[in-house]
């Protein structure tokens, strides 16, 4: 072998810190996207987004004058036609209850599915965050460059944020935007904004807490297997234990997934939507009103404060772990 110096010289000014952090994020996400599991999750996440658009489209077409529901009802006879006309009238008279309520329920379901997808996605991603870097002493490679452990951490947080964005936030926004483009009037835009804001708020809370907890779990061990076991333990096992209503409060809030479920209830307030529907809509069917009230009782929560504290404690503990472990070994 002969050493020749057929080498270009790099004399340009290096790109700044934001670029170097972005390099960590984009490379990490590229590596994750190569995983088959993640592609499947991505498909499900975007299918959920498409369902939001479809639900919005079907609903808006149902109540539009000359829409397919009206045309179908006309073919099914006078009785059905009058029921559909009454339904359309209720939606047009009470858009604040109907449109707001419908989108709250749709976004609540989407957040349930997307959170679950993110948790599954994180199970595949979590050893790649810090665990494998610790096992291969990669921190030395990062920190011997113009980066600090805070930059490294921000880059890794960005990878988790990227995962949540592509599996959850982007399908949510795309689905909502598409359904708005297909909506017949402004009411849909006006009365779906608040549910969307709630969905994004919960999305943000979940993003921050999942990012911190997953980094903390990823930093605990140098073994990928142990990290996955710990993650599943915290997610599934602690979740099952915490779900038991007779357990003491501290145990019920020791699970991040259970805490997030409680916070979701208090952010979306599906109980309020159902109560308003039962109180304000002129529903002549008593059974329907009663079922709305029952649904409201089931979806109400009084544990949101405890859940927020529990989640905060878990996030702080995780932050303590990853700050302690982020040193070259």
């Amino acid at each position: 072998m002969e050493t020749t110096f057929d080498l270009s010289r790099w004399t340009e000014k290096p790109h700044g810190l934001a670029y170097r952090r972005w390099a960590i994020v984009s490379t990490g996400l590229r590596q994750v996207l190569r995983l088959r599991t993640f592609r499947i999750l991505l498909f499900i996440g975007w299918a959920a987004g498409a369902l939001i658009a479809l639900a919005g489209f079907v609903f808006s077409q149902s109540v539009a004058n000359g829409g397919w529901l009206e045309a179908l009802a006309a073919n099914l006879g006078a009785r059905v036609e009058s029921v559909v006309a009454a339904f359309n009238a209720v939606v047009l008279l009470y858009p604040d209850v109907c449109v707001h309520g419908l989108f709250t329920i749709i976004f609540g379901l989407q957040s349930f599915i997307a959170l679950w997808l993110c948790l599954v996605g994180l199970t595949a991603l979590i050893p790649r965050l810090i665990t494998q870097d610790r096992a291969s002493n990669a921190l030395t490679i990062y920190l011997a460059r113009p980066l600090t452990s805070a930059d490294y951490l921000i880059g890794k947080l960005g990878i988790v944020a990227g995962l949540v964005l592509v599996l959850w936030t982007a399908p949510l926004l795309s689905g909502w935007l598409l359904s708005m483009l297909l909506s017949p009037n402004q009411d849909f835009l006006v009365y779906s904004i608040r549910p969307l804001g709630n969905a994004l708020l919960f999305n943000g809370i979940a993003l921050l807490s999942l990012a911190a907890i997953s980094l903390g779990v990823s930093a605990v061990s140098r073994s990928s297997r142990n990290t996955i076991i710990l993650w599943i333990g915290l997610w599934v096992v602690a979740g099952v234990i915490a779900a038991h209503p007779n357990n003491p409060a501290w145990l019920r809030h020791a699970s991040f997934s259970q805490n997030l479920a409680e916070i979701r209830k208090s952010v979306f307030r599906v109980d309020q939507v159902l109560t308003r529907a039962a109180d304000e809509l002129p529903l002549f069917n008593r059974e329907l009103t009663a079922s709305f009230r029952r649904g409201a009782e089931e979806t109400a929560t009084d544990e949101s404060r405890g859940a927020a504290v529990g989640l905060g404690v878990l996030v702080l503990l995780s932050a303590g772990v990853f700050f302690r472990k982020l040193r070259p070994e």
Binding site: R128, D133, A135, S136, N137, A138, T140, I141, A144
Partner: peptide, 9 residues
Amino acid sequence: PERDCHIPG
């Protein structure tokens, strides 16, 4: 570095 260091994957 002296020790084996690399970025995995």
